[in-house]
Each structure stands twice: as structure tokens, then as C-alpha cells.
């Protein structure tokens, strides 16, 4: 094992850096720019049973040190992902990929997870119960512990691969949701999805996003995400994947010290397409500066300072 390697639900990753769902498509756009086999893995675009166009445009707005998106789960649907995207990915990515799944009913989550679980390229299922940009699905499953547990149980019953529940920060107590997922059999949790937000165009006196609200991501949310990873890592025994505004090797280390077993990088990929490659390249030097021999040794390493 190299000094960057970590283990996620029994699968070894060369490093803990994972491009987050929705910022990396199905990988091929980035494979044109660099060898994406340098990644730990990546989480592909949130996939639903049917193809989805998503929300009307504008879907994107600027924020201080971040951005809002209200894409609304645009994706080609699970059939096209299996028939077209995965074969295309196979040519440029030779590691297990994280399959991100979304749905509008428990039955939909079950069907899409069952089908993707059967794909040899898929290493983990990341179940998105936290999309803030669709109605009647997504986040409504992730804001209620009973619903979150129900989706977890139903997906676990039809799958063989590790199931990671992706959690919403738009709740009163994220640790309670995480515990409900763990009790229902989740193998890991990832957090945070975006924070519900909005912007108004003051010249036109109307919301910038056609969907009115969207999800805030980028460096602005990093301290919030870090705090929630810290709280959840304390509350559950399963691995926690930390994400939210991570854009440097130092922030990967910070997330891991808070308790993250691996770290996803989202919005940074959109403003710097080479962001993940750079973060991975910079990790050894950042570790040296912090006196870290092996990354896997520092997971939860700041926990001794827990408030009493």
C-alpha cells in the first residue's frame, strides 16, 4: 500500500480523492484532459430509471466563493448508462467506479441500484437521498430518518456491493439521519450534498435560477461540511466520505482529520478541470509539511479534541 492509499468498504483506493457526482459526468470529458486512473475512483452523474432533462435554464448562479446549481438530475437514464456510458468509460478507466443513483420512489431506487449493482465496473453504490433541486424525490428521502432508513433497507436487500448513503445538510440533525442509515444496513455515508440557497437579479427583480432555489457548493461551504463530517464520524461506526467545497490537498487532510475515510471533490472540477489531478500530485508534499507518513493513519485524528 502506498502512503496515499486508503480502504473504502473493503476496496483499496490508491488515494482518497474522488470527484463528486454531478461535476464529472461519466468521466469521458475529463479522460480527454488527463489520465483519470490517477483518481481513487469517481462518482458518476446521478442516474435515474428514466432519462431526465432536468430543470429549465438558467441552472447556474455565482455566489461569494461558490456557486449555485439547479440542474435537477439531468441524466440519460439507467439503460443508456449501462448500454453506452459504462462501455465508453471502460476504455479510459480501469478501476471500480462509484455509481450514483437517484430516484423519486423507493421502487425506483431499488430498480436502478439492482441494475447497476450487476455491472462489473461498479464498485460502490452511492445513493443520493439529498438532491435539493427536484420535487417529490431526492432530498425528501434524506430529510426524514424513517424514509432514509426505508430507502437504505430496500436498496441493501437487492444489492451485493457496498451501499453509501449520500446525505443532505438541509436538516436539523444530520447525525440522526446518518445513524438511521447505519442501523438500516448502510455500508458508509457521504456528506454533504449542496446547501439550499438562492440569488436574485436585482436589476430584473427576479430569481436568477429558473428553479428559484438551487444548491450552494464550492469553498464557501467547506467549514460547514467539515463540521458535519466531524459530527457524523462521531455518531456512526461506518466509514464517512467527506465532501463540500474541498479544493486543495490541505483540505483533503483536514477532512480526514475530522473523520473522513475518503474525500470527494465537487465544484473545484468545474472551475479547474485538472483540480483532482493537482490535489493528488500535491498530497505527498502537503503530508510532509504536516508530518504525516500515511494518510490512512490520520482518519479522525483530531478527535482527541472533542468538546466535553
Amino acid at each position: 500500500m502506498g502512503r496515499l492509499s486508503v480502504t473504502l468498504c473493503g476496496i483499496e483506493l490508491d488515494n482518497p480523492v474522488i470527484p463528486a457526482s454531478g461535476t464529472f459526468g461519466y468521466g469521458v470529458e475529463f479522460a480527454e484532459l488527463y489520465d483519470i486512473n490517477c483518481l481513487g475512483t469517481f462518482s458518476f452523474k446521478g442516474t435515474t430509471r428514466e432519462p431526465r432533462y432536468g430543470n429549465p435554464t438558467p441552472r447556474i448562479a455565482e455566489a461569494e466563493s461558490g456557486m449555485l446549481n439547479a440542474v435537477g438530475l439531468q441524466n440519460p437514464g439507467v439503460d443508456a448508462v449501462i448500454a453506452e456510458e459504462l462501455p465508453r468509460l471502460k476504455k479510459c478507466f480501469h478501476k471500480p467506479v462509484m455509481a450514483n443513483v437517484s430516484g423519486f420512489s423507493v421502487e425506483e431506487y431499488v430498480e436502478v441500484c439492482r441494475r447497476l449493482d450487476a455491472q462489473a465496473q461498479v464498485g460502490w453504490l452511492e445513493v443520493n437521498i439529498s438532491c435539493p433541486n427536484v420535487h417529490g424525490g431526492g432530498m425528501s428521502f434524506g430529510t426524514d430518518p424513517h424514509m432514509a432508513a426505508e430507502v437504505t433497507r430496500a436498496v441493501k436487500a437487492v444489492t451485493t456491493k457496498p451501499v453509501i448513503m449520500k446525505l443532505s445538510p438541509n436538516v436539523t440533525d444530520i447525525a440522526q439521519i446518518a445513524r438511521a442509515c447505519e442501523d438500516a444496513g448502510a455500508d458508509a455515508v457521504s456528506l454533504i450534498n449542496t446547501l439550499m440557497a438562492m440569488r436574485i437579479d436585482i436589476r430584473r427583480r427576479r430569481p436568477i435560477l429558473a428553479n428559484v432555489t438551487g444548491g450552494l457548493s464550492g469553498p464557501a461551504v467547506f467549514p460547514v461540511a467539515l463540521r458535519m463530517v466531524w459530527q457524523v464520524a462521531d455518531a456512526v461506526g461506518i466509514p464517512v466520505i467527506g465532501l463540500g467545497g474541498v479544493s486543495s490537498a490541505e483540505q483533503v487532510i483536514e477532512m480526514m482529520l475530522a473523520g473522513a475515510a475518503a474525500v470527494e471533490v465537487g465544484a473545484a472540477n468545474l472551475t479547474d478541470p485538472w483540480a483532482c489531478q493537482k490535489i493528488i500530485d500535491e498530497l505527498p508534499a502537503a503530508m510532509d509539511r504536516c508530518g504525516i507518513d500515511n494518510l490512512r493513519d490520520i482518519i479522525g485524528g483530531a478527535k482527541q479534541w472533542e468538546k466535553t
Binding site: G22, T57, P58, L270, P273
Partner: peptide
């Protein structure tokens, strides 16, 4: 309005 400008985010579809 675009997020990335190179086809990754589906912001401008």
C-alpha cells in the same frame, strides 16, 4: 449561464 464551460456540469443544456 454556464458552470464549467466544457460539458461536465450540465448547467447549460
Amino acid at each position: 449561464r454556464m458552470g464549467c464551460g466544457f460539458g461536465a456540469c450540465m448547467g447549460c443544456t
